[in-house]
Write a protein that binds this DNA or RNA. Structure first.
Lengths: 196, 196, 196, 196
DNA sequence: TCGTAATCGAGACGGTACGTCTTGTCTTAGC
DNA sequence: GCTAAGACAAGACGTACCGTCTCGATTACGA
């Protein structure tokens, strides 16, 4: 009989210490030098306490990122009636967040884990990507109703085209992440590449 | 003064063995379990021979990926006169390549290294992203001249919007990478999201 | 402040396995090919477990030798009343012990470490040489009381002259280590080199 | 056809540089950190040049020690007619030599090699111990003829008893190596331990 | 109110990779 | 044709971290 830890018994102070220490530490030393041992030491926690509650460094980082980023997460995208302005607002905010080294490093770490771990990727899609995507879909549907977005546009493709380039430029550092850039992306995506 | 190894003395057989073994091994065991020690062992090579010529696992993976992927690289994007068709052809080919586990794993490994290493990212931009981007720019410029692309479109933004979503969906596994998907991306990007 | 391992936590089975494996291994492969890695492997023990408890190969060999040789160590030299006979008995026993390859190799290994390590030499003197020397001194003092040894003889010099030649011949292999030889040493040392 | 190095072709400058560098280096860094690589580097010589002419670090050290110590070696022991005085003179000189760190370290290194290498030990006995021993035998035989040494004393045993204790005390650092100590050894050995 | 059982911090354990070093052999230029 | 220089395969060095384990001490539950 395998002993399953009882979440009720869980020491919440330790849990929170671990999650916030993970974020702080990845911000300090970067993903490559982030170790479970180091997190335990810095959090003043036994290694076993981490292994008891998380199955891998990735899932710990995932939870840590959720706790860190999720706190200030908006429940919905702004809707002022001006789709382009609203999208630019959201994307500029994203760019600004990524300027914080802790946010930047934490998100990089989480992405690295996702790239190499199918299960974690599935969890990411389910718990982070899907909810965010639903918020975006809602905003875009409203735009369709308002006649600002073509009716036959596949919303997921639209989302990928609006948010994908920014995420990509950040991950691969192929260019500077500026407000100008996101404005251009929004304008170009909405208007299209062909002459009209 | 650090002793710099003399490239003339380099054993090319060992170099090639290391690069191809790295690709094979990352395809077998995945990035997380890829070790320099393991590559050396599998390549029948001393560890020092790897450390002598590469400064990090990342730069080795980078070279390995270049040697592996670069061989079959096209010198230019196709230009049949039909921009949409040409782009779809290229993106479908990319999607097909990523179906090969060796290619998939090797590219994931390289991207992970890039995400966490500024210098490697710079080298990636210089040696892989920029040349590829130049080929794409050339094709898009031709399309502009042919009146298939608006004159005021920023080409880099256009490239990000065409190729970014595919790369993203692959890296994050946010959805299936199909020919249909890339077709939709191309069509939507060209036409734009707004009604017309 | 360096973290000092807590001896209470020490796994005694591992400790004993390491010590006895060290003796066995040095007996098999000799000092020159004795490696900490090899001892760990043969003892079924992690390398760190050796490094945690011993600061050098020398101090491990020293402990191993103590555990191996110390077990059968006599608490006192025999005293039958006949000094020459007693000394010959002890020296012949020493010679016989050195015939065992494990004893021979282990003792050689320890001596090599001592020759090149001041601190280890000091520990050797304190923990092995001094106690043994005290036993010998006690026996010689008894002989002085019995009128078999001159009163003005410096006991340490006497000990060096009785036991030194045997140890030397063994270490340097300058000649065969026989019972005859030790008998001659004892007789000559007692009687002196000058005519009488 | 195996290439046998032709001694005539031997570059004597390189040979001398290697031998003297070996002595200098062992004096600086000690035996434990003495490497063939290090000697080659310090001597400005290719590694192969060392491997070509010496089969092991031990035999190199042996030659180096011979070249270093042998130069100032007396052809015979002094014979003033006073055996005790002559022996003390020789032993005091030995003690003084061992005060030189280069001599000390070089001799320790050679002894370590001898302890673990049968062949080298045989060569040591043949080329160093035997000749020295013959000089000592000659002096002792003269003493026998002069009536200062008992006729029935085995000369090799006498030599071991006179020189062994000093060598031993030096190798094992069991006590300080002083002129007083060697004087006591000589006096005690000549007179014997028994009362007379 | 008191066991008793799970959690906690701590850290030893068997493994294994790290990046460096040395070994003894082999290769390449240069004198 | 030997030299110096140094690349090569091999493998040990001592350190770090992995994930499991064992240890008392603490804590919270249910009897």
């Amino acid at each position: 009989m395998t002993a399953v830890p009882d979440p009720n018994r869980r020491n919440d102070a330790a849990r929170r210490a671990i999650l916030s220490t993970a974020i702080d530490l990845v911000g300090e030393v970067g993903y490559a030098k982030l170790t479970i041992q180091g997190i335990a030491r810095a959090a003043g926690v036994g290694k076993q306490t981490i292994y008891r509650w998380w199955s891998s460094k990735g899932s710990l980082l995932f939870d840590a990122f959720l706790a860190f980023a999720g706190d200030g997460e908006a429940a919905a995208l702004p809707d002022t009636g001006d789709l382009a302005a609203d999208l630019k607002l959201v994307l500029r905010a994203t760019v600004d967040e990524l300027d914080d080294p802790r946010y930047d490093q934490a998100m990089r770490a989480m992405h690295v884990e996702i790239v190499n771990d199918h299960l974690l990727a599935a969890e990411y899609v389910l718990r982070l990507d899907q909810p965010m995507r639903e918020l975006k879909r809602t905003r875009l549907r409203a735009a369709q109703r308002a006649g600002q977005l073509a009716d036959d546009v596949e919303l997921d493709v639209a989302i990928d085209m609006l948010f994908g380039p920014v995420l990509n430029r950040w991950l691969q550092r192929t260019g500077p992440l500026t407000h100008d850039y996101v404005d251009q992306v929004v304008d170009t995506a909405l208007r299209g590449l062909q002459p009209r």
